[in-house]
Design a binder for these strands. Structure first.
Lengths: 263, 263
DNA sequence: GCGAAAATGTTATAATTATAACATTGCATG
DNA sequence: CATGCAATGTTATAATTATAACATTTTCGC
């Protein structure tokens, strides 16, 4: 399996580059070989294509990867993020203009947006934009620029200026690290400008983080914990987070029990 | 089938809003019903979800819709666009910075980009951006703004200025209508600014249109035929196009036979 | 509570898709 | 031109997914 096989995969990949599915039967006739050969191509060579129930799809496309495999460990992770986003969504009101940060934490929030009549979403993340573009009730503003694959988001010099021109109501920010004394940080420096601009412009700022982020310090610092009005996190994690927290009082923290403002 | 059913679908849609697939088995256990019930929900109510080989996906997501159904009439249309794009791709050179227009015509071009070592793609279309984001060898610059679902693209006041700041090498432009005397037009007015800016800035301008567009006049005029250096179209359509064409001579028109410069 | 109708579950069966085993073709090398 | 090996095709069988039929449960009006 080498040259011919690779060529076939290239042709198929080319065909599917724009998205869509291709039945194995059609893929075979397109390449002028039998279905079995296509199957063997896929299992021998590694490619960007995936076979999903007899149909070929681009593996990198968002809808092809399993989102919720009950058998996998992700089943532990996903419901948590879903829960956090459900809490976060309780702060959304009809007509809001929301800034939604990049990363996977806030993705389940997007599903909740269908429950409103009219919203506006501002984002610099491609995965967020793709999900929101399918919602007829949500106006989408994508802040463009150069694409960074690592975070599926865009960076640009005038990101800050672009955000300042928009009347953002509520900012939903995610982070890769939160430390009581060292503040809130993320992995990629190009995320700093949009995050800071959104924090500066929004009238309400929400930080949404799961417990695993607490105590972590990541390369790109972008805010102090005090810059946020609301922190949404796991209940069991909340006390640990605020041990050395000396800033202003957090309101509306949706952690009903077990949370004590120990500072 | 009404209330309960709709709620289940809403939950599933929420779960899949961010993309990914959900096995029917998992969907059933998530909703606390049998697989059969989910199947019935899907077949009774219409929703944004699709069942693809035992897995649920968002139907609106690019990778879920069949791209090339050999049994359908699209099989007649797609190969043509593929052919046009193959010709158009022959003008691409290593290291180029390409402007790629919105619409479906240029989508097959994106598959060809994988054959190069390093390229930069500038676009204001979400579907183009999604496809290009999967290519590791292509730098992607997305021109953002307000999203227009009708053309899967973005519009913004400073689109023109943003394009002028980028050194665009070759502009690949599509159109919904081309008329010998009335010029080149499209359906949506927000497309005019980016198209015109790209035409103004690029050092080489290519118009890619299939024969069905010739003779059509659409609401939004954006260029004269003379503004383009190269026109890529079906061979049989070329002569008709240039009957009253009095502008400068087109070079590199990749229509080897049957084409006569009748002007 | 009773009975009808809707909703859901269960089972059987058909259709499709996946895997494995073996047959055939085609190409390169001596 | 025979030989061997890689590539592909064919067929059989297993596994999965889809559909249909019927059983059971739930819901709601009376």
């Amino acid at each position: 399996m080498n040259d011919r096989s690779a060529q076939r995969l290239a042709l198929l990949q080319e065909t599917l580059a724009g998205g869509g599915t291709l039945h194995l039967r059609d893929a075979a006739s397109l390449c002028g070989v039998s279905e079995m050969t296509i199957r063997r191509d896929l299992s021998t060579q590694s490619s960007a294509l995936a076979l999903l129930g007899g149909r070929l799809v681009m593996a990198s496309y968002p809808s092809s990867t399993p989102a919720y495999d009950l058998a996998e460990q992700q089943a532990n992770d996903y419901p948590l993020k879903h829960l956090l986003c459900k809490r976060a969504a309780s702060f959304i009101e009809e007509g809001d203009t929301l800034f939604i940060d990049c990363g996977s934490t806030l993705v389940p929030l997007l599903g909740q947006l269908g429950n409103f009549h009219e919203l506006t979403v501002v984002t610099y993340a491609l995965n967020v934009a793709t999900a929101v573009s399918a919602l007829p009730n949500v106006r989408l503003v994508l802040l463009g620029g150069l694409f960074y694959a690592s975070s599926q988001s865009f960076g640009s010099d005038d990101m800050r200026a672009a955000i300042e021109r928009i009347g953002i109501n509520k900012a939903f920010i995610s982070a890769a690290g939160v430390d009581c004394t060292r503040g809130v940080s993320c992995f990629h420096f190009h995320e700093v400008a949009p995050k800071q601009a959104a924090i500066a412009c929004a009238s309400q700022r929400l930080l949404v983080i799961d417990a695993s982020k607490i105590g972590m310090i990541r390369p790109a610092y972008f805010a102090s914990l005090n810059d946020f009005d609301i922190v949404v996190t796991n209940e069991d994690a909340a006390p640990a987070l605020f041990t050395h927290f000396t800033g202003r009082v957090l309101t509306h923290l949706p952690v009903p029990s077990s949370f004590e403002q120990s500072c």
